[in-house]
Design a protein around this nucleic acid. Structure first.
Length: 400
DNA sequence: AACTCGGGGAT
DNA sequence: ATCCCAGAGTT
């Protein structure tokens, strides 16, 4: 379902929604009363600034509140308004986003800020139809921003709201287009009032804190416990009906740890595909799920030679880091490497301080942290004044 | 309609 | 291990 749907049709569906949900106004009142009593105090609920609310909604896409809390204030301090974001270098924006994931969100956010700064006097649109034209803003996010920031009557249908409405109305359709076709009209009917922003936030808050997935639902605390069709039918745990997801691909990435003093060599990832343009410890997909160690050394040497030239020397295997990245389960095998060439920009040796201020991948952040911890432990064991004497380093640490 | 795109926390 | 999260864009 798209935002371009004819208004007449949508109005008709909303009428049907009213029949499905009798006493809609009373339900809304119960919901808002619960929200005023039970809602969490979140930083983006302390502002009416459309830009700040926009930033929060983008960060919150597919991302939990607790995760966003660690980024939101810092991001706004660094990019306090739309013009600051529009004028900032993309690398700075990505650095502030580093660790949040779905980096396309940050690129879209900045590019939309540039658009609005140039063509709209820096003002975020007040209606859904204009907001959805901006990159990174779909129907749900558009509804959230304009309803919360301006009080525009626009609905939200994110994962939380979908679950709440599917249970409330007993919608058994498979998650995806079929369920959304039923749920959007309900969401639209509920925000057709004088407090659409609060209604939307109430629905999201209810889904995030009470109407939780599966058996985690806390129905006793729900303001809608008496009218909920799923609760009456005993189907709370099975709604919404989620569709099976694709299996994770298994991959092995070979990681080069090139040190210069306390600094680590970083390269910029290729300009397309996963984590594109972010900085990382040079990592190369092995093309095989479980290569043996000799294959790893050959592959890594060849990849490094192609990237940096010369004849890279592959030393000890230092650690194994496991991480799920997007739709892959990745085993990152890190090797100590010596290069006989001088890496050229944008590859660079980065200090600990620089690592904190660069747009680096989470895998790199975690691997560097483990290597530093290892170095600290080794130094403490052997003493500051003594050179390392053991010829044989400890075997690779177990997966984290 | 299926796939891409990150990372983390709860269960 | 599995699920899913204040989803959107591309194919």
């Amino acid at each position: 379902m798209t935002a371009a749907e004819p208004e007449g049709e949508r109005e008709g569906e909303r009428g049907a929604a009213r029949e499905q949900l009798p006493a809609l106004a009373e339900r809304r009142t119960q919901l808002l009363a619960w929200y005023r009593r039970a809602h969490r105090d979140l930083p983006w609920r302390r502002t009416r600034d459309p830009y700040a609310i926009w930033v929060s909604e983008i960060m919150l896409q597919q991302t939990r509140v607790e995760t966003v809390l660690a980024y939101y204030d810092r991001f706004l301090a660094r990019f306090p308004d739309l013009f600051a974001l529009a004028a900032a270098p993309l690398d700075d924006v990505l650095a502030a986003w580093s660790g949040l994931g779905y980096y396309r969100r940050a690129r879209f956010l900045k590019s939309a800020a540039e658009l609005l700064a140039r063509d709209a006097g820096g003002r975020f649109p007040r209606d859904v139809a204009a907001a959805v034209l901006l990159p990174g803003i779909g129907r749900s996010t558009a509804g959230a921003i304009v309803s919360i920031a301006y009080g525009t009557r626009a609905a939200v249908l994110d994962g939380n709201v979908k679950r709440v409405l599917a249970r409330l109305a007993g919608l058994a359709e498979l998650d995806g287009a079929p369920l959304e076709k039923r749920a959007w009209p309900l969401a639209e009917a509920l925000v057709d009032c004088d407090a659409p922003g609060d209604v939307n936030q109430s629905l999201m808050e209810l889904g995030a804190t009470v109407c939780l997935p599966f058996a985690a639902a806390r129905c006793e605390e729900c303001p809608w416990r008496d009218g909920c069709r799923a609760r009456a039918a005993g189907t709370v745990e099975s709604l919404p009906q989620s569709r099976p997801r694709a299996a994770l691909r298994e991959e092995t990435w070979l990681v080069a740890v090139v040190r210069r003093g306390s600094r680590f060599l970083l390269r910029r990832r290729p300009p397309t595909g996963l984590l594109h343009d972010l900085f990382e410890l040079p990592a190369f997909e092995s093309g095989s799920a479980a290569p043996d160690e000799a294959q790893c050394r050959r592959l890594l040497a060849r990849a490094l030679a192609a990237q940096f030239g010369g004849a890279p020397q592959i030393g000890d295997e230092l650690l194994l880091h496991r991480q799920v990245i997007s739709n892959r389960r990745v085993a990152l095998r890190a090797f100590a490497v010596t290069l006989d060439t001088r890496p050229r920009p944008p590859a660079r040796f980065a200090t600990a301080a620089e690592l904190r201020e660069l747009a680096i991948t989470t895998a790199t952040r975690k691997i560097v942290a483990r290597l530093r911890a290892e170095a600290t432990r080794t130094a403490a064991l052997s003493g500051p004044a003594r050179a390392r004497t053991s010829k044989r380093p400890p075997p690779p640490a177990a997966a984290s």
